[in-house]
Structures are given as C-alpha cells and as structure tokens.
Amino acid sequence: MADSTTNFSQKQASLEKKTRIGESLIHVVLFACALCSIFTTVGIVVILASQSALFFADPQVTLLGFFTSFEWQPSIGKFGILPLLNATLLTSFIAVVFATPFAILVAIFLSEFTKPRIKAIIKPILEVLAGIPSVVYGYFAVGTVTPVLQRVFGSDTVEFYNTASAGIVIGILILPILITMIDDSLTSVPNNLREASFGLGATRLQTSFGVVIPGSFSGIAAAFILGFSRAIGETMIVALAAGAGSALTWNPFRGAETMTGYIVRISGGDISYNSIDYNSIFAIGLVLFLATLGLNIISRRIVKKYQWNV
C-alpha cells in the first residue's frame, strides 16, 4: 500500500514543468529573428512614407498633379509620374507577354511530357538561370538584343535605348519563376482528369491543351500577375537598356525611363539630400511598393482560391 503511494507521487513529480534552457534560448533567438524581419519591413515603409510626405509637402508638388500630369521634368518643377509609370507598365507588359507563352510551353513539357528523372535534371538548371545577376541581363539587352532588334527592324526605327529590348530581357529574367509556378499548377491538376481524357482517346497534346491547361487556368493567371510584379520591380535591365530621360510613349522602339530606372539614376548621381529630386524617388518607391504588394496579394489569392481540393 505504502509502496504504491510513493510510486504515484513520483509519477506526479515527473509531470511537473521543467525548464529546458536550450529550448528557451532557441525560442528567444528565433523570436528575435522574426522581430528583425518585421522591423525591417516596418522601417522601409516608415522611411518611404515619411520621405514621400516631405516630397508632397513641397509647394511645387500636388498629389493630384503627381498622378495625372503628363510630364516628369524635375529640373523645371514638373512632377507627373505618368511617363515613368507608362514606361514601367510597357516594359513589364512586353516582358510577360513575351515570357508567358514560352513559359507555358516549357511547363507543359516538364509536367506532361518528361519523366520525373529528367525533370529533376532540368529544374535545377532553371534555378541557375534565376541566379544570374540582373546586371548581366542588362548588358545582354544592350549588347545583344538591341543590335538584333536594330538589324531586324532597321536602326532608324529602333533607338539604341528602347523599351522593347529591356522588356524582352526582363521576360527572360522572369522565365524561371513563371515556369516553376505554371509547372506547379499543371502538376496539381488531379491525375484522374488526365486519365479521363486519355480514356476518351485523347493524345498527350490534346490532354495538355484541352484538359490540363484549362484546369490550371487560375495558376497560370497567378503566375502572369506575379511575373508582372517582378517585372515592375526589375531595375538593372531597364537602367541599362531602356534609356534615361522620361518620355510618354507607347512605341516600344523608343527609349523611356521607368520608375526604377529613374530611382537608380537619381540615387546614383550627386543629388544632395533633402532636395526635391532626392525626395521624389521615395514617392516613386512608395508607388512601386504598393503596386508590387497589391499584385502579389492578388496572385496569392488566386492560387489559394482555385486550388484543387485533392
């Protein structure tokens, strides 16, 4: 009897909380890391917002004018973001339109036509492609793509700095991420749909285009949007290839400075702190930040909402 009582109390003791120093330490370190990344993000937003506020506080600038006027000439006090925004949208649009069809084809090849073993070889190669510094792509645009465009369309039509060249090369830059995203979404199409299609006497190609692609339309749309958001933020390529100096044009063979291109040029130049030019890059940065954030959220929403429930 007494024996069993001791036994019981011993067991109870073993249920008590213990302090595990290693565990707690790791907990604290990890929490600190998480806090760091949150603080960094908050810091970026705060600086973007406060410097932008300085910019908008300047009497030469109005919020309405910033978003609606057609000229960006800081030297003569004209601050309309539209030419820069237009150039950004133009290069990004060229990039996704150029890259998406190609990415879809590669993704179909990877997900529907290759054995897993071969796919395991090709995918890392794509990841290497994604690791090339974008300045290299920039020189590729200036040194290769632009001359080719000039040869094909004539050097009278194609200016040396032009948005087409930058757009195409941004397209190449975002290819790996597009391919990966589209491949993921094709792969997630349930196999029983493929079997249904093969069972009706469809070929692999018919199955890919008739069943798998329509079945992952949302994933492709999400990839398109995310690719667009990446393209908007791309900097080195446009800085090198799209030209300096804002221009409001839809002609892809003319030069036009993008938002990121302008930011690079100003921040790299010898403009003094707290000048209006300097502050303007924060306002533009804020617009970029909000645009990419919005697009990323939309893209994630689409992926989540239309996921296959298997």
């Binding site: 029983n192 299609s197 069972g199 009706l200 070929t203 329509p214």
Partner: peptide, 27 residues
C-alpha cells in the same frame, strides 16, 4: 477510342456539361 472507360470516382472535366460530352467527340 474503341474501348471507353468509366472510373471508380466520378471524374467529369471542370468544364460545362455540354463541353464534357462534346470535347471527346470532337477530338
């Protein structure tokens, strides 16, 4: 094409009823 198949779990295409029938016939 000569030997059709019906599976254990119903697996209609995520298309309209019309397209489900017409697609196989078309190809």
């Amino acid at each position: 094409r000569k030997v059709g198949m019906v599976f254990q779990k119903p697996n209609p295409f995520p298309k309209t009823i019309w397209d489900n029938i017409v697609w196989g016939a078309k190809i």
